[in-house]
Design a protein around this nucleic acid. Structure first.
Lengths: 126, 126
DNA sequence: TTCGTTGCAAACATTTTGCAGTTTC
DNA sequence: GAAACTGCAAAATGTTTGCAACGAA
């Protein structure tokens, strides 16, 4: 049975309010000033809970670190190889998924559509 | 300047001949019997070279470990959440990529299209 | 009072790196 | 012989876990 916890709320809110598809470390750094006794272990433990319950989803692994998203609607992402930014991009995928299921006999539960390259901001400054 | 090396050849051949999208550890275990003095560090160092030169590509990160592929043609993958298998699936993506470039002003260099779920083999045995 | 939650530090897993010896050219 | 390559072990990085103290119901 899950109880109420201030830190858990803060972690979930942090993910929901951010648009950066944060890593565990980023969340920790973000909350630390307001919750000086927060520990990284707590962040990870709550992230595990959120992922189990489906409130949060892992959308990519960038340079070894998982990147999270509280928007669980399937959508694609673009990762800038220069600045590490993770951007939402709109790629309709319902057809792709049902197509795969019929052609390969698999059950598709989630998808992780990543495009990597250089974002428009980094293209300008180089 | 890159020199010739037996172990490097063995590592690249191992990736090319396998169909499992191997991890570094898997390659190491595969080659160890025939190259008893092989070290995991050498595997990683050569993988880094291959990735730099484009001979090998990382197609996914499964349970923390990078999975590699010597087939560098862009193609999509299906990951079985039960058995961890990584399968090739055919998803045409030229249109997706050029579409993204025009809509978002980004440069797409690589794509990593992952679908996760249950493979047909695991569906049958459950 | 019960049991979920947390801080802390130690343990883990994957990957990287420093160094001294070896191989390739 | 110079420079690339390697084994080995230590370090770095991201994540998990054991335990005793804490906090919510």
């Amino acid at each position: 049975m899950r109880r109420h916890s201030r830190k858990r709320d803060a972690i979930l809110n942090c993910i929901r309010q951010s648009r950066v598809h944060p890593s565990a470390e980023w969340i920790y750094a973000q909350l630390k000033p307001e919750h000086p006794d927060l520990s990284l272990g707590t962040v990870y433990r709550n992230l595990a809970l959120f992922r189990e319950s489906g409130e949060v989803v892992c959308v990519a692994t960038v340079r070894g670190a998982d990147r999270l998203d509280a928007c669980t609607e399937p959508h694609a992402h673009f990762i800038c190889e220069q600045c590490g930014a993770v951007l939402d991009v709109d790629v309709p995928q319902d057809d792709l998924r049902s197509d795969l299921e019929t052609r390969y006999g698999v059950r598709v539960r989630r998808s992780e559509l990543l495009f990597r390259g250089v974002c428009s901001a980094c293209r300008e400054t180089s």
